[in-house]
Design a protein around this nucleic acid. Structure first.
Lengths: 192, 192
DNA sequence: TTTAAAAAAGGACATTTGTCTTTACTCCTT
DNA sequence: AAGGAGTAAAGACAAATGTCCTTTTTTAAA
């Protein structure tokens, strides 16, 4: 649900000065739209800290959340290869610190740095191989199964991600989520 | 719904003799399991002719169909990179002619042939960028919307793909599919 | 402390979808 | 052509889910 790629973050922080300059560090507050769906951008983004949602929004106001991105997750790289507008939005859930790197520098690094090349290729493969099982499970199990599994993996998710976002991730309404949480006797853990 | 990659097929058929030998041509009849989920394989497969389904099956007998693959679609390449068992099955729907290439030769070609490298990378990117919108639409629209869209794109789908497979692709039961087809007054086109 | 406004949760009902069963259709054999 | 086996479609009901509205809780201000 909340994806990470520590290898990529480590790779960036260990880059030699010159190449590290490719990566521009920025930060934003919760709810900021880091990248807007259906627009063209010259940047690839990498989350350094915080959580953002990667979501597709349609004309009817429906939001479909593909994944929640955390440390080291990269966004907008498909568009380097296919030269299209980005097809989903990246929106900060918590405050977020992120790197951005231009398409040109991304491509340059990809060609000049074998390690980077491998990390990027692997990240594509990982993204691909995670999607299938996620949607298969979501489609073939009941809502309660899905919620149960989610809260096993992330018991504190209610403290981090708004309920409406969790519902959108699961493809259900907030009402359904509340109902199932009640049935499963899941309550928000106390924070101190 | 039925994916193709003509570039890859063309690339293979234009290869010089020596490299073309990497690709072994085989064929199978309808319903053959070309590749079995959760097993390790040394082959990457490429459909030359016919249609196969790429599906995930769980312990409860649920089948989730990711996509239908046709000319030029490649399968099992993720496992070259991540060295895991294949996570979905490839099952022939029609009679199928396909190429297979060993992991070793796939890797070799990837490193030695720039064109092949680009085609493979692009195919990964395409697969990735098609999945999001597909699942978003499927999740946020009604069953009827989904069926209507499907039959706009592929009016003859009922002549090619069994109803149960269409239902599994849409994540609904056969009963639901029939009900919606009735409501939408969609009937199987006559073949001659 | 009380009250108003806003946000979150829950109730009631309608609709959708699935499960299980029955009915209809096809095709093959005799 | 008739019967029967197997496959496909439809009917009936139950369960799940969404929509809309009410209630509760929280927050903030007077």
């Amino acid at each position: 649900m909340i994806r990470k790629n520590i290898d990529l973050l480590n790779f960036i922080s260990n880059l030699k000065e010159e190449e590290h300059l490719y990566f521009i560090e920025e930060n934003c507050t919760s709810k900021t739209i880091i990248a807007q769906q259906d627009t063209r951008t010259k940047w690839v983004y990498i989350i350094k800290q915080g959580i953002a949602k990667c979501s597709l929004n349609d004309d009817n106001g429906n939001e479909f959340i593909q994944e929640f991105f955390s440390e080291g997750m990269k966004f907008g790289e498909l568009e380097v290869f296919n030269n299209k507008a980005i097809y989903c939005a990246m929106i900060a859930i918590t405050n977020v610190v992120y790197y951005k790197i231009s398409h040109e520098n991304f491509t340059a690094l990809l060609n000049s740095n074998k390690t980077f090349n491998t990390i990027v290729l692997k990240s594509l493969v990982t993204k691909l191989s995670e999607k299938g099982p996620r949607f298969a499970f979501q489609q073939n199990r009941t809502i309660k199964d899905n919620i149960f599994k989610l809260f096993q993996e992330f018991p504190t998710v209610l403290n981090i991600i708004p309920k409406q976002d969790i519902a959108n991730y699961l493809g259900i309404t907030l009402r359904s989520l509340n109902r199932s949480l009640n049935d499963l006797q899941i309550v928000k853990p106390e924070t101190e």
